[in-house]
Structure formats: C-alpha cells, structure tokens
Design a protein around this nucleic acid. Structure first.
Lengths: 236, 236
DNA sequence: CCATGAAAACTAACATGTTAGTCAACCAGA
DNA sequence: TCTGGTTGACTAACATGTTAGTTTTCATGG
C-alpha cells in the first residue's frame, strides 16, 4: 500500500520555478519522474502532493493532465494516477521521432548556418573536449544536451526544441539509467566531431549521416536495460 | 465588443463526442477554430461556452489549456483568451516539423512495408483517382488525409500521427483557406503517384524525394494567403 | 477454506465559490 | 486637447465543495 505510493516529500520546492502555480507543479512532478525519484508503477495521490507543495487540487490536476498527455503518467478514470512504466515501444517511437527532427535540423543548419552560429557550435564542442578530459560526466551531459539544443535553436524554429523534448521524454528518462563511462564519452565526442565537421563543410548529407550514426548508438544501450531492470518495464 | 467575441452557438453539440467532458469541449472548440467558424483575434469567454455546452468552467478551462498548449489560442493571464492569429513563422515551422516526420515515415514504410500494406496504400490512391474524376473535392480531401495517415500508421508508431497532427495544426487551419481546384487536385494525384511508385520499388530515397516535392507545393500557396487575407495574420 | 456480493472508502472528474491581476473608462489637472 | 492616475468591471487562476465511478474490504454462505 504505502510502498507503491510516491514519496511526495521528495518533490522540490516549487517557489524555485516561475509561471502559474499549475506550471510550477508540472515542472516539479516532471522532474521527479524523469530523475526516477518517482518510480514506474508508483501511485500519485493528489492529497499528499497538494499538502507538500502547499497548493490546492486545481493546479495539481492541471499538471497531471499535462503529464498524462506526455505519457509520463497513466490516469485511470475515477480511480488513480500512476507513474508510467517504461515501454520499449514508446522508447523506440520516441527515438524515431527525435531522430526525424534531429536529422531535419542538422541538415538545415548545415545549409543555412552563419559563421557566428558555427563558431558557437564549435565552441561547445571544445568545451565537451575539456569536460571529457576532466572526467566531468555531469558537465559533459549538460554540454551534450546544449550541443543538440544549439542545433535546433539555429534552425530558427523556436518550437522545435520543445517538440523534440516532448516526443522523447521517455527516452530522456531511460537515459537516466545509463551510467556514464569514459569510453562512451570519448565515442560521443568523436561522433559530435563528425557532425561539426560536416556542418563546417556545409555538407547537409554528411551531417545527416553523422547524426544518424550518433543517434543510432543510443537504442542498443537502452535495449540492454530491459534485461537488467525488468521491473521498470511494463509488466501489466 | 460583441463583434470581437466568438459566437458560442456555433459550437457543435458535444454529446456527439466521447471521452471526458473536458475532452469533448476540447474537440468542439478545436473544430470551431480549425474550421474558421471562430476567427483569429476573436475573444473566447468561458461563460457563453459553458452555457452553450451545458457544462461548468472546469472542463472548459482544461480544454482551453490544451488549445493554448497547441498554440491555437492565446491566453492573456487574468485577462482573457483569444483565437490565435495566423503567423507565417508558426506555419513555416509547422511545415518543417511535419515534413521531417513525413520524410522519416515514408522512408521507413518504403523499406519495411508488407505486401498487404502496399495494397492498402495503392487502393487509397485508386480511390483518389476516382474522386478527382468525379470532381468530389471534399471526398478527395478526405482521401488525401487518409493517404498520409496510412503512411504514418504503417510505420508501426501509433503516436506519430498524433504528433504530426499536433505540430501542423496551424497549417491545417491555413489549408482551410485554400480553395480546391481541378488543376491542383490532378497535380496532387501525380505527386502521390510518385510516392507510391517509390514505395512499390522499396526505394526509400526516391520516396523521400517524391514526398519532399509533394509537401513543398503547399507553402507557396499559403504564402499567397498572407497577401489576400492580411486581417487573419498577426498584426501585433 | 474459498467464493460472492454488498457496502464502505477512496479517487478523478466536475461544479461552484473566491482571489487577485488586468484593462478600459473616466476624471482631474495641465 | 492631452496626460496621468484612479477606480471598477471583468477575467483567468486558484480553492473548495460535490458527484459518480472504481476498488478494496469484509461479512456471509457454500
């Protein structure tokens, strides 16, 4: 009973965020789910969440509705809400959608980029190199995220990043289970380098190939997780 | 005052839909916005909507929140909600996102399709031919939609269609302004034929080129609208 | 011991009351 | 006439009360 419930005290204080109350609650819950502080299958009860965050049920309901829309929670009508299990189908689909958007982005950027934009991308890559040398994996993860964010930003389409993030939320959550290793970080660096080289050469086709290869490295590593941590994958 | 308000009586009865009340209200409002029964800039007041649909403010609020998330309405905090103006930037972005997803889909389908799937696609194409011959543009529009829906369905990724629809809602709305012409229908048919030919040959690359060409026909026609109907485009 | 079903307890969904932010109309003063 | 501030009406956002559907519990009969 209690073991299947989330621990609402692990929600971070919402005063750190801005926007409407509902949006703050949404961010707090999403963060807890993505960071696996709330585990798949655990039940989210509005009461404890309201109590912990000091808000009423309205903003919590709205937040949960958005999470349900993103597939991070399953709402059982008139019954309850639980953290969604990992689903290999969802993750594969998220990867496919993400790749479609990344490939289109990198091709456009390779063709249209300004010199200044390329300089920013290249600067980020050099930062990545330093962080790998320092074995700063947390920093590297952040720089990696920013690398992809920069590419999307430079398409000139502001919603792209948001959409890409949304379609691959399940993938993002699964990535949390992957432990960083020196070997993988070095490989990632090389793959990013190939993407940057193609962008430098304004070779859209090569950029797509490099990006496709880079993104293709992720799924096999996630597939392995289904064996290692079967309890997190949908067993219903 | 009243001329800038939506006419809530034009909302269709929600008992036709299923799901939660909030979902029904969402569908009714979205339909009214996409079909241009509610025009850009018009103010949506919860009161009249509640009255018309016979529901309370809760489901209406949730519906509006979703529409705001999709960019179909603009919510001004503590003040009001209005139907979003057309924005060329949004439409261009929606087209880009849609194309990214369509290209990835058609490539995958060209590679992985079963014989039965191809037969279904081909059957749809023959239906399109008949409808064009009959000058049934409404039917042709529907078959066109189904053509693209089939391709996405056959990727095996169920959310793809939903995501593609969501990212290109603004484009869908803009398409409502385009009058169907015999010439364009015939061209569309030829473009679809090229896509199908490539899928028949399992040539992913050719399928992408054909689809890119097909989708590329839309933007110029929409661009022209900004001149014809400037009052619908954002003037802010 | 197990099957069964009634009822209690709990939940999301919905309705309604309340708060606080926004905006336009109005008025005073220049 | 124009400017700047004040006020009041109106709104979304939030809080809370209510309803209806689901699940679990537990007594009863086999």
């Amino acid at each position: 009973m209690t073991t299947t419930d989330i621990d609402a005290t692990r929600l971070q204080d919402i005063s750190a965020f801005d926007g409407s109350l509902a949006h703050k609650v949404y961010l707090a819950l999403q963060e807890a789910i993505l960071s696996l502080q709330f585990l798949p299958g655990q039940v989210i009860r509005k009461g404890p969440v309201c109590e912990r965050l000091g808000v009423s049920r309205s903003p919590v309901s709205e937040a949960i509705a958005r999470l349900a829309n993103e597939g991070l929670v399953d709402v059982i009508p008139q019954s309850g809400t639980r953290v969604a299990y990992f689903s290999m189908e969802d993750i594969r689909e998220g990867t496919f959608l993400r790749q479609a958007l990344e490939l289109a982005s990198v091709a456009k950027v390779a063709e249209d980029r300004s010199e200044d934009q390329f300089a920013q991308i290249n600067r980020n890559l050099r930062l990545q190199t330093l962080l790998v040398e320092d074995l700063d994996y947390s920093g590297f993860y952040q720089a990696d995220e920013e690398f992809h964010a920069l590419l999307m930003l430079f398409t000139g389409y502001p919603r792209l990043k948001t959409v890409a993030r949304m379609v691959s939320l399940q993938v993002t959550r699964a990535r949390m289970l992957l432990l960083p290793t020196p070997g993988r970080a070095t490989e990632t660096l090389d793959e990013h380098q190939a993407v940057v080289d193609a962008i430098r050469a304004r070779d859209a086709d090569a950029a797509q190939r490099a990006m496709r290869h880079h993104l293709g490295q992720l799924m096999p590593r996630i597939e392995a997780l289904a064996e290692t941590r079967p309890e997190l994958f949908q067993s219903r």
